[in-house]
């Protein structure tokens, strides 16, 4: 691939339709490697839809049609890549923590196992490393074989992050990962996200503008399916170029 450029995703003229409803309108964004990009905007504005185009989770929704192109490392996601293999490179963390009703260990080992890793030593290693990376190893190391559903919401979400990391993705998509959590858990997850930036490209949808300001390098503001403004987070929040962005971040609607 010749990693000359720093661009992870190059999105060109992206239009997305759910049957006749147009959910995304000619979105043009470039997302850089090892940066945190946050997507903000009111409910139903297309930010989650946009997020899900990056690992083709929208493929699973019937009646979805995608136009334009998304290049990851220069390769077209929708035309030149298999969705299953893509999702192993672009992991996802969801709004509600959704661990499987299995043990902590089996949750983290799920991804490696479906890729055919069977050796116990290898799995042990991946589980430990992933949980450490997600900063939850110390809390869980003594209860690896207990059900993940017995954990608190915040622990469950960090476990889900560990589970995603175990697949060894290049990119992590996060769809409002803290909206179901308390402030302390939220802080822990935000710290974790910032730490993960070193090795991963992270794109996060958030309803919380302070969160976007705290964690992200770049921010995109979505409104009615349009990427109204995209730029360096500090600049976007202090000197929005578009009137609509200003109205939103100053709380005039949303």
């Amino acid at each position: 691939m010749g990693d000359t450029s720093n661009i992870k995703f190059k999105i060109q003229d992206l239009n997305l339709f759910y049957n006749s409803f147009q959910a995304l309108k000619s979105v043009n964004i470039e997302i850089e490697k090892n940066e945190i990009t946050s997507l903000i905007g009111p409910s139903g504005c297309g930010k989650s839809t946009f997020l899900k185009t990056l690992n083709r989770m929208n493929d699973l929704v019937e009646g979805t049609k995608v136009e334009g192109s998304i290049l990851m490392d220069g390769i077209d996601l929708y035309r030149e890549m298999d969705a299953i293999l893509l999702r192993r490179r672009v992991g996802m963390v969801f709004q509600q923590p959704n661990p499987f009703p299995k043990s902590v260990y089996d949750n983290v080992a799920y991804g490696p196992r479906i890729q055919g890793i069977k050796k116990k030593i290898e799995l042990d290693d991946i589980v430990e490393r992933s949980l450490k990376q997600a900063a939850i190893w110390d809390e869980l190391k003594d209860r690896l074989y207990k059900s993940a559903l017995g954990l608190s919401g915040g622990q469950q979400q960090r476990l889900c992050i560990a589970r995603t990391l175990a697949v060894k993705p290049e990119v992590i998509l996060m769809d409002e990962p803290t909206s179901a959590l308390d402030p302390i858990s939220t802080t822990k997850i935000e710290d974790l996200i910032i730490k993960l930036k070193e090795h991963y490209t992270i794109i996060i949808v958030t309803h919380n503008m302070q969160q976007a300001a705290r964690v992200s390098d770049k921010t995109a503001f979505f409104l009615l399916g349009e990427a109204v403004e995209f730029g360096v987070t500090k600049e976007l929040f202090s000197m929005p170029r578009d009137k609509r962005t200003e109205d939103y971040i100053t709380g005039r609607f949303g």
Partner: peptide, 27 residues
């Protein structure tokens, strides 16, 4: 079986059969 389990499994690059066998049936 909550669809969030299926989402999680799809999000990690599972095939449909892997999801049925490893996630849905055990749950």
């Amino acid at each position: 079986v909550p669809s969030s389990y299926r989402d999680a499994a799809y999000g990690m690059g599972s095939t449909r059969w892997q999801i049925i066998k490893n996630v849905v049936l055990p749950a």
